[in-house]
Design a protein around this nucleic acid. Structure first.
Lengths: 141, 141
DNA sequence: TGTTGCTCCTCCAGCGGCTAGAGAATGTAA
DNA sequence: TTACATTCTCTAGCCGCTGGAGGAGCAACA
């Protein structure tokens, strides 16, 4: 068909699962596509690009509302770019934060594993480390 | 009271919110505590340690089932430590993975922000980067 | 011309891990 | 006493999907 592809192919080509595509349509992130005579959705290349955009942004950790904002900007390209910039900067701060705490966690897990010498649980540091830490440090986010 | 503290204090001391404590009890992660005459929950220091354990493990990204497994080990200390060790090792792999992809993401965000010179959206790299990437690379997890 | 097997449709329920609210009963302080 | 805080139970909602039921349609082959 030259009018487009079915949802299954759109899913395969975009890397977004079929129910997720329908979900995005439902919440208004994706326009309602054309339908075949038998009511099947048809997607074109513009839809595929939009899906790829969404998927990538989700992978980068943008939440749906941020993506909605970015897509709105994309649909109205004469606006200022400051909003998009702001969204990206907010994400950068979050990401930095998460990297830092994951690195701390990694160090902690390595200690746990290193000290656990396959003895009995009574001697196992994995559990000890987890139990102790909560009492000595309180670095709530 | 020498029999323990109320849920509010338990929440303040453990860093776990009141409804979350009740939720943990509901899903069987925490035993049902003693109650006062007027039906209020009383927590003792053992409960506080367990809560701190759970909070810390959650911060480290362990899911509830992993924590349940760790707590079961803790309650039966004569078992082998291999299970706890396995759980920690699995987490370490995950964490490493996430650090790597967050670092990649950070780099990408920095490029996006760097190249966005507060012009119009038409020239804005924030959106372009997001749109393009999905088409060239497909490093699905 | 079946009939097998795949995709698609809609609708609705459920997941994890909380979080928030209603409405009622206690507890504590001035 | 009056006010306010805290607790209780119960229920519903949050996000971002994910899966299943039950049915329609379509393509290919015998």
């Amino acid at each position: 068909m030259t009018n487009g592809i079915y949802i299954g192919d759109a899913a395969r080509q975009s890397g977004v699962k079929v129910p997720t595509i329908r979900y995005y349509e439902q919440i208004g992130l994706l326009r309602s596509p054309l339908r075949s005579d038998s009511n099947r959705r048809f997607y074109d290349t513009a839809d595929l690009r939009r899906l790829a955009f969404i998927r990538h942004a989700r992978e980068l950790g943008f939440d749906i509302e941020a993506i909605r904002a970015l897509l709105t900007l994309q649909d109205n390209p004469s606006q200022s770019c400051a909003t998009a910039d702001g969204i990206a900067k907010a994400r950068l701060i979050e990401v930095d934060q998460r990297i830092r705490s994951l690195l701390a966690l990694k160090a902690e897990l390595e200690v746990m594993i290193e000290e656990c010498r396959h003895g009995r649980v009574a001697d196992c540091k994995v559990i000890e480390v987890l139990a102790d830490h909560g009492e000595c440090q309180h670095h709530h986010k």
